[in-house]
Design a protein around this nucleic acid. Structure first.
Lengths: 225, 225
DNA sequence: GCAAAAGTGTTCCAGATACACCCATGA
DNA sequence: TCATGGGTGTATCTGGAACACTTTTGC
């Protein structure tokens, strides 16, 4: 390929909760440029594959994470990326993905894994390229989605307490909500319903368990709502 | 270039009012595929240029329209486009642009112009590729922007009456607003201010002229608001 | 004087916000 | 019995929506 051809890459912003903290999947780059630095999992789109296939490939190779573990938000977004090769123009296609309990691989052998880690948003290290802006963008989109969809359910276990749900929202919006108003709103919007089961956790009153009222997420496509 | 390399193209959705109708710039394709069919002005991104430069090039060549006439919304969006070449994967970067009084060229000579026309949204012909979805997407984004920015001012003359402004909003949102509520809201939001001048139009009471309160548009970047 | 668009206030309602105490459990 | 988090209701505020008549002009 001619070095100055436009370059098309894909980057994934994969969110997951670690404890009650919103985290994003990072890898540590194995080669130049930015060797050793933290970055989003990303890769060149190869001849004959789609951006989604390339994303699947990089997640498998560098983080040992299967796309099947992830709810992908099917709305790729393009960023005019800073030049990787000084003579080429690069566009990166960003996907946002949501998951829970995903364990990125940690093989110490001769694999291609690049030390994948879910890293708390509030503790992001310096990132390669403009990846910090891309993460911020995805975070912002997640918040926008969370205001009018049940998307947060994709980040939580099948059943959860309202306190867990509230903590998730608080992590995404980076602010506190009033407990009574929050619960009123969730029930009013019909996002959740009781399962009938309880969850006992410690030396205090057990909590009711809830689940998503409609547990499929309407993917947020360019065709709108 | 290897035919199966991923392909990067750019398409522009350039809005303008024609009369009080929201319109979009279309060209008539001069070659296959979709020869003769209406389409957004778009082009392959060539080696060594950015998506914006490619957009500038296609608007100049095919529509005789300078980027200087246009307020570009600097938030390119990527679409996984249907394949133009069956063996290649294509991504198109969309820019939205707003202008007023732009006259696309109409040279009849041997130029490269492809019959550029501003076409009313409500009368869109069938478009090539997935361009109809791209137009719909841009239209939707324009409406979202219009709800919380002064972006509509980029589509109107420097001074305008509140009725003109209201007609612009009604065209964008495809619905009618109450005159009193609309005016109250515009003034409350501080989008516009009186110029002191009046505009006389016909056998009826003259209208006050307004202008944007802050007449620069904050470009809507991935870095947020 | 009449046709045609400009201009102007008040009432009502729904959804958001603010706020404090009792309950069930394990240790 | 106490420490801990779970659970609940009401009053208020604010922004949006509905709604009709008078004013100014050209003909």
């Amino acid at each position: 390929m001619n070095k100055s051809d436009p370059i098309l890459t894909v980057d994934g912003v994969i969110f997951q909760f670690v404890d009650t903290k919103l985290s994003v999947l990072l890898i540590q780059r194995g080669y130049e440029p930015f060797k050793g630095q933290w970055a989003l999992p990303g890769v060149y789109i190869e001849p004959g594959e789609t951006s989604k296939q390339a994303l699947e490939r990089v997640l498998a190779q560098k983080a040992d994470l299967s796309l099947s573990k992830i709810t992908l938000i099917e709305q790729p977004f393009a960023f005019d990326a800073p030049h990787r090769d000084p003579r080429a123009y690069a566009v990166t296609v960003m996907y946002m993905g949501l998951c829970k309990n995903a364990q990125p691989g940690s093989a110490g052998d001769g694999s291609n894994l690049q030390n994948p880690q879910f890293t708390t948003l509030s503790e992001l290290p310096e990132l390669a390229y403009d990846h910090r802006a891309i993460v911020a963008f995805a975070h912002n989109r997640l918040a926008a989605l969370a205001t009018h969809t049940n998307v947060v359910g994709m980040l939580l276990p099948k059943t959860f307490t309202l306190t867990q749900l509230q903590q998730a929202y608080e992590a995404i919006f980076e602010k506190k909500f009033d407990k009574r108003n929050f619960r009123k709103r969730m029930l009013m919007l019909g996002f959740v319903k009781e399962t009938g089961d309880m969850y006992t956790d410690g030396a205090h009153r057990p909590a009711k368990l809830y689940t998503l009222a409609k547990n499929k997420f309407q993917s947020y496509t360019p065709a709108f709502e």
